[in-house]
Amino acid sequence: MSNSFRQDLAVRPRRIRTDAWTRRLVAENRLSVDDLIWPIFLQEDDGTSDVPSMPGVKRYGPDCLIEAIGQAVELNIPAIALFPYNNPDTKTADCREAYNPDNLICTAARSIRQHYQNIALIGDVALDPYNSLGHDGIVKDGVILNDQSVEILCKQALVQVEAGCDYVGPSDMMDGRIGAIRDTLDDAGHTYAKIMSYSAKYASAFYGPFRDAVGATGALKGDKKTYQMDPGNSEEALRMVENDIQQGADMVMVKPGIAYLDIIHRIKSTFGVPTMAYQVSGEYAMIKAASANGWLDHDAVMMESLMAFKRAGTDAILTYFALEAAKIIKS
């Protein structure tokens, strides 16, 4: 071997990959239980029901909810996000069930707080689970009414916080709703209630199983492209995040996740604010389906996908894999 060849190999990047302890020492990103938020679906009836398009995901009734939350508490998952599966008779054109202080989210929050104090509760603030037309806002003559919708979203956020939610997660994409919700909460004395804004929520085809989970699939008339973002847009995401920060958002969200890692990275690099990502139902379902067919290694792909979010810059990930991932991390 020539001296020049040996000199070239003085730099051997493989040296720091040859053993597990060195790989651990030099790892640039780490995934911990602290990075996980578990989305959970609520139902009015006792017991549980399966979400057919999301294998392993269940809706929980009041009699099963506390035991389910106990799993997250035992694993030290820091937060759960609450989403309702409402009975059809509670879905109306005026979405009044959204701000009923005894609706599914509020009732669940009070129940959880009676048993657990050491896990954060995030209430979903949007009208689609309550809307007989399946939209995230009030609809009149086929048009989504922005300001009228924001008024209801403010009421919805307030009853959730008063029921025990630590965060509200406006996922509706109506203009001006973050500032309006912040003012509503502050005026009611909830200065320290936090807003996790879905600032860059795209009009994505990856949401199908979620709409199944909350019972909004059959009701939806038309699409959501007049308020959710165009998947081709990137600069717009930065404008949306900046707007929400100025209005009082404490954290910002990108949804979906894997197909939008570039957006996550740009937001975190530009603003440096707490940046969350939602590994949405379609992403979850694809991994589950591929692994069920033996095409992918379930646990390996699950953990790799979550690490991709961390590498892109996320501070936390809403994921239906939260319990499974936490168990692997703990072990």
Rank of each mutant, 00 (worst) to 15 (best):
M286R: 04
N293R: 05
T275D: 10
G272S: 07
D297V: 14
N293G: 04
N293W: 03
Y284A: 05
A277H: 03
A300N: 07
V301N: 13
Q279T: 00
G294T: 11
W295E: 08
A277T: 08
Q279K: 07
Y284T: 01
S281R: 05
V301M: 08
M286P: 11
H298D: 15
A290L: 08
N293I: 03
A289T: 08
P274Q: 07
G294P: 00
Y278P: 01
F271R: 10
S291M: 06
D299L: 14
A292R: 07
M276E: 06
I287A: 09
G272L: 01
N293L: 07
G282R: 02
K288M: 12
G272D: 13
P274T: 04
L296K: 14
A300Y: 13
M276Y: 11
V280M: 04
S281C: 02
A285F: 00
W295P: 01
K288H: 11
M276L: 15
D297N: 14
S291W: 02
S281K: 08
D297K: 09
E283W: 09
D299R: 15
P274L: 03
S291A: 12
S291T: 12
S291R: 09
S291N: 02
S281P: 07
A285K: 04
D297P: 03
T275F: 13
M276A: 15
T275C: 04
S281M: 10
F271H: 09
I287S: 09
P274S: 04
T275L: 05
A292K: 11
S281V: 01
A277L: 08
V280G: 08
T275E: 06
A292Y: 10
A292N: 09
V273M: 04
W295N: 00
W295G: 07
S291D: 01
A277R: 05
N293A: 12
G294A: 12
Y278T: 00
A277S: 13
D299V: 15
A290V: 07
A289E: 06
H298I: 13
E283M: 02
V301S: 01
A300Q: 11
T275R: 06
F271Y: 09
M286I: 01
E283D: 02
A289I: 09
G272T: 08
D297Y: 11
V280P: 08
V301F: 06
Y284I: 00
K288A: 13
Q279L: 00
Q279W: 06
V280S: 13
S291I: 02
G294E: 11
M286V: 01
Q279V: 11
L296T: 15
I287C: 13
I287D: 10
A300V: 14
P274H: 01
N293F: 02
F271P: 04
V280Y: 04
